[in-house]
Amino acid sequence: MTIVPPAAAPPQRLIVGISGASGIIYGVRLLEALRRVGIETHLVMSRSAEITLAHESDLKIADVRALASVVHAHADIAASIASGSFRTMGMIVAPCSVRSMSEIATGVTSNLLTRAADVVLKERRRLVLMVRETPFHTGHLRTMVALSEMGAIIAPPVPALHPRPQTIEALVDHTVGRVLDLFGIETDLVKRWKEAD
């Protein structure tokens, strides 16, 4: 009888995609939180994300890149994260544009961000898409259903108000903490319902 050892746990390594949708602060705060808890991050930003950064933040592209363990060019389809043999815990796209979501859903990818997400899906790893659009039309919703059926988690950054956030940062942090909960990553960002203050 052959004894098959259990599969090794995946490395504490997470891919972070930042698309050009509004809400780039989610991706930035995600990188900051992962850095604090010692998770290796592989960042890929779309060109549109770089433009959005200039509109929504005083941060420079170099500031965001400095938060990641490894940075990949969005056009580098030969990057490590484009291969299923490169083991990760999965990927979060924060924020996720409807265009990126649609490419991931069809598997017709045009850049490293959507290719890496497609790889995460095919390898049956966790993919979380913080889809940033409202309102959604029926085509958007059908695409989300298709992705959910493929195993992705659709997690629009809907603010939780029960923690009574006093700042935008607190609002963002709670959402980021809840997304990291999906990977079993504990942070101090979440004020949990009914837990003691």
Rank of each mutant, 00 (worst) to 15 (best):
L113N: 04
P11N: 11
R178L: 09
G38M: 02
A116H: 09
L189G: 01
I77V: 14
D58T: 14
I3H: 12
V120Q: 06
D173S: 12
L113G: 01
E103T: 09
A73S: 00
F86W: 09
I51E: 13
L30K: 10
V37C: 15
A105R: 03
A82V: 05
M89I: 01
L147G: 07
P163Q: 05
P6N: 12
A9Q: 15
R164W: 13
V4W: 09
L147A: 06
I25T: 08
S110K: 15
L67N: 00
V4Y: 14
G27V: 11
I25A: 15
R164E: 15
H162L: 12
V64G: 03
L67E: 01
V179E: 09
G27K: 14
I18E: 07
D173F: 09
H174K: 00
V119N: 06
D197P: 12
I92R: 10
A9H: 03
R124T: 01
S110Y: 02
G184N: 04
P6D: 14
K191G: 01
L161M: 15
A94W: 10
V70W: 01
L53R: 13
I3W: 08
R142S: 15
I61P: 09
G177L: 08
E123A: 11
R125Y: 02
M101L: 11
L30R: 10
V108W: 10
R99G: 14
S46W: 09
R132I: 07
S48V: 06
S100Q: 05
L112H: 03
G177F: 07
A7I: 11
A117T: 04
S48L: 12
M101I: 07
I39M: 00
T52H: 00
I25F: 05
